[in-house]
């Protein structure tokens, strides 16, 4: 199940759009277009085997 999304990036644009200035606090603008492009691109950033990746993160407890 964890493998099914890797490679699902056919719609992704080749160029990563330049970052836009972040909104100031209080302005709750919805940057829908930016979220869409990130939804397209995020799979290329994540390692492919999600389940193994998550299970591989084991730490001891802290204070």
């Amino acid at each position: 199940m964890s493998q099914q999304y890797s490679g699902s990036r056919s719609e992704r644009e080749e160029d990563v759009p330049a970052p836009e200035p972040a909104p100031t606090a209080g302005s709750a603008q919805a940057h829908t277009a930016d979220l869409d492009s990130l939804l397209d691109e995020i799979d290329s950033v994540l390692e492919t085997n999600a389940e193994e990746f998550v299970k591989g993160f084991v730490q001891k407890g802290g204070q």
């Binding site: 970052p19 836009e20 972040a22 709750a28 603008q29 940057h31 979220l35 990130l38």
Partner: peptide, 17 residues
Amino acid sequence: GRGLFTLLQSRGAAARF
């Protein structure tokens, strides 16, 4: 550039002051 929050912030999907 890798962490999801950092990506959201650089696209304006997370605000900052």
